[in-house]
Design a protein around this nucleic acid. Structure first.
Length: 552
RNA sequence: GCGCGUGUAGCUCAGCUGGAUAGAGCGUCGGCUUGCGGAGCCGAAGGUCGUAGGUUCGAAUCCUGCCACGCGUACCA
């Protein structure tokens, strides 16, 4: 790769001139300055007690004849800018599609999504699914074998509330044999909402719900068992329907009820060493490592979420013993919680804990419209999907790829934000198909495909010796692809891909406006660039698990 | 109170392992019809980067105080 050779050359020159051992960094400057830039002269200034300008001049003298370099110049306070020859740039651009596989041979577990049956799947879950899926896909691009996992609270008070609600609804015939899942989506949510409300307002109901809760654990009441079973199934069918709309799948679902035994066993085994007794409960003293103290087993001898999560870590470890990494993706409200849970795991099983990381995404807010329902601040995932779907259908009734456009719009609206902080989703904006959006990138891709389909010229033997300005800009942008993917993998920040693809598409569209391709005398060169561009765009979208249709 | 996080254009956000005139979309205003898909392109207006200090040749970026907001803070998940 061109940049590696340059870095080495700079290193050698710095050593030769100043006997300095440095790790030069190349950055991508503004296009007006060149293709690569380095600030080593500024860094060396202090150590050598010479002026940055002087050092830069000396370095330029050493480097100006490097292969593939057209010009080396000094600018500003002492930056050294490198401009590649057009043929070197072309070569770099045309191999940009071939990415290294730094994670080859690794098995990585990624847990995300995690909506609870009997409750509405809201836009926060949607965010988690989209992010988790994109990160999984990103790791696969880097060569890893990824297992997409999810974890669901199938027991507990929320289930009891929903079952109470179901029992008290007059008509629940469709629960048994629902032919259209979407018809039932509000059904369970309504049952949960009424149960939750009754739990708050009505003491009799509260007792009844608590009783249901123990029956759920005990499994002794046939009617409750049946409602529990059918309701869970209905919930998961509903989740699947949403995921199908987004073209997201998971490899394995873990249920909270499955984790209890393993978790409890693990905690009990480590009482005294890792856990201690306090006020009748079994706790982990997080304060000794600067965290909160949290309860793992309650004074009523019930396992908390913490214990179940420890149990889950054991189940995963048993199912995938070869995994080298385990990533758990949740909303950032759980960040502190995971620190404590992982600290406890570290005391129990340091090797497993070292492999496990928690990755947080922000809370999803909505900027326009009333988002709160009667049950609180939950905005159903399905509602957002429908809104976007309707907008796409209305605007492009003839299109054959409306489904792909719809989920591109939704996914991109989430993924373009940097992971970690809260986001405010503008529903209008996520519906919009213009500007910095998934559909814009898809459209730009379809344009390129259309050109390629029309041309009959064979470009495999074309050698590019020189570019015009517009071609050069496009080639330059294409050549950055491997660096962007590399950074995205290292940071696990998918938004870098979005930003890059958007800029790339903009560069292409600008090129497209100024440069005729078919019929022009430069057709072979331009066609070759369009081909490279189209592949990068398709591959980049694939990393985000967004389809790149050839026609729209 | 303590802990974690956030504060960049009217709105939504990039930029944050310090570097060159702080970028983009939306919105506003003004252009592009004979040429490969106008879901596009070109341009204009719009910023004391929350605030006050500090470190540095150089700070949106690092450090400290303050202000505002969000989340967490023992038997929920």
């Amino acid at each position: 790769m061109q940049s590696q050779e340059l870095i080495r050359a700079i290193q050698v020159a710095a050593h030769k001139l100043y006997n300095a051992k440095i790790e030069p960094e190349l950055s991508r400057p503004d296009e007006q300055f060149g293709d690569y830039a380095t600030n080593v002269a500024l860094q060396l200034a202090k150590a050598t007690a010479k002026s940055p300008q002087e050092i830069a001049r000396a370095l330029v003298n050493e480097l100006k004849d490097s292969p593939g370099i057209a010009t080396v110049s000094i600018a500003g306070p002492g930056f050294i800018n490198f401009k590649l020859t057009d043929s070197a740039l072309a070569k770099t651009a045309l191999v940009a599609i071939d990415l290294p596989k730094p994670l080859a041979g690794q098995e990585i577990l990624v847990e995300f999504g995690d909506p609870n049956p009997f409750k509405e799947m809201h836009i926060g879950h949607l965010y988690s699914y989209i992010v988790g899926d994109a990160i999984s896909s990103l790791l696969e691009t880097a060569g890893a074998q990824v297992r997409r996992l999810s974890y669901h609270g199938d027991v507990g008070l929320h289930v009891a509330k929903a079952i109470y609600g179901l029992q008290n609804m007059t008509d629940r015939t469709d629960l048994k044999d629902a032919s259209d899942v979407s018809d039932n989506e509000n059904y369970l949510a309504t049952a949960y909402a009424s149960g939750a409300k009754a739990y708050e307002d009505d003491e009799l109901a509260r007792n009844e719900i608590n009783s249901i809760n123990t029956h759920i654990y005990g499994g002794s009441d046939p009617e409750i068992n049946k409602l529990h079973k059918n309701g869970s199934q209905l919930s998961f069918e509903y989740f699947d329907k949403i995921l199908e709309l987004l073209s997201i799948s998971t490899d394995k679902r873990y249920l909270e009820s499955q984790t209890i035994e393993a978790g409890k066993k693990l905690v009990e085994k480590n009482v005294g060493q890792v856990f201690s007794q306090s006020q009748g409960a079994t706790v982990y003293d997080g304060e000794k490592v600067g965290l909160h103290t949290r309860v793992f087993i309650t004074s009523k001898n019930l396992p908390t979420y913490e214990t179940k999560d420890l149990g889950l870590s054991q189940l995963k470890n048993k199912d995938y013993p070869g995994a080298t990494r385990s990533i758990i993706i949740t909303a950032n409200e759980q960040t502190e919680y995971f620190k404590v849970m992982l600290a406890a795991l570290k005391d129990i099983d340091p090797i497993l804990a070292a492999k496990t990381t928690h990755l947080a995404h922000g809370f999803v807010n909505l900027s326009s419209g009333k988002m709160s329902s009667r049950t609180g601040n939950v905005y159903p995932a399905m509602k957002l999907l429908r809104l976007v779907k309707d907008a796409v259908h209305q605007q492009y009734p003839e299109s054959k790829v409306r489904k792909e456009v719809t989920f591109a719009a939704v996914k991109y609206a989430f993924l373009k934000h940097r992971l970690g902080s809260d986001i405010t989703l503008d529903v209008e904006e996520s519906i919009s198909l213009e500007g910095n959006s998934g559909p814009y990138i898809q459209y730009s891709h379809a344009r390129a495909c259309s050109i390629l389909a029309k041309s009959k010229i064979q470009t495999s033997n074309i050698e590019i010796k020189e570019f015009d300005d517009s071609e050069r800009s496009l080639a330059r942008k294409i050549s950055q692809y491997p660096e962007i993917v590399d950074k995205t993998v290292a940071e696990l920040m998918p938004h870098h891909i979005c930003t890059y693809l958007y800029e790339l598409a903009q560069t292409f569209n600008s090129f497209y406006e100024s440069s005729r391709i078919i019929g022009d005398e430069r057709q072979p060169i331009r066609l070759k660039l369009v081909g490279a561009y189209q592949q990068i765009l398709a591959n980049g979208l694939a990393i985000l698990n967004i389809k790149a249709p050839e026609r729209m």
